[in-house]
Amino acid sequence: MGHRAELDGVAGLLVAIEFADDAHRALGVRWSPAAPAHKKLEYARVFLVPVTPEPDRVYLELVDGLPRASVSLPESLPAGEYVIEVDAYGSASWGDGRLDAHGRSACFTVGTPLHRAG
């Protein structure tokens, strides 16, 4: 649950997820700095990442001022193994590429989409 090794100089985040439905299509994401002395994080970008040899991150949400988010996974998302990654920034500088902290959740399984009548 730490940051990726190739992100030298970037603080680690602890990322936790909670599921809001049985098919894992909606979830809550929380993050906190791995080291208590880390500066306050103002913005975060939340990504969904498949656990595959060549994963592509899927952007889910931009969060302003909170260490948590509620996200819905795309209906077209295939069943499989995934993680959530969070990139966090100490200011609105996220647009200029100055990443301050990064973290990854534990692996979780997304089931087959629920079929709703209607």
Rank of each mutant, 00 (worst) to 15 (best):
R57L: 10
I84S: 04
L41E: 10
A88T: 09
M1E: 07
S32F: 06
V71I: 12
G28A: 14
L114C: 06
L14V: 14
D96E: 15
C107R: 15
H115C: 05
A26P: 00
A79P: 06
L62R: 13
S32E: 14
H3E: 07
G103M: 07
V86P: 08
T109C: 04
V63Q: 01
R68L: 09
C107I: 15
E81Q: 10
D64I: 02
L48S: 03
L73D: 02
R98W: 09
H3I: 08
T112I: 10
G65Q: 03
A23V: 13
D64V: 13
S32Q: 15
F108A: 09
G95C: 00
G118K: 05
H102V: 02
A106R: 12
A35Y: 03
S91L: 11
A106L: 13
I84Y: 05
V46G: 07
R68N: 09
P74A: 11
C107V: 15
G90R: 12
W31H: 03
F108L: 05
L114T: 12
R25M: 06
C107Q: 14
G9W: 11
Y82P: 06
P78V: 07
K39F: 09
G12I: 00
P74W: 07
A69Q: 07
F19S: 13
D21P: 09
I84D: 05
R57Q: 13
P78Y: 07
A88R: 03
V58A: 13
C107L: 13
G12P: 04
G9Y: 11
Y89G: 02
K40S: 01
P113M: 07
V49G: 03
V83E: 06
P55Y: 00
R116F: 13
S76I: 04
D21I: 10
G12V: 06
W31N: 06
L7N: 12
S70A: 14
D56W: 00
H3D: 04
A23W: 03
D87C: 09
E18S: 15
A92M: 10
E85S: 04
H24P: 03
T112Q: 14
L27C: 08
R57E: 14
G9Q: 12
G118H: 09
V49A: 05
L14Q: 12
A117M: 10
G97R: 06
P36W: 08
L27M: 13
S91R: 02
G9K: 04
H102G: 02
R25L: 02
K40T: 10
G97L: 09
V49T: 09
A35E: 13
L66I: 01
L73C: 06
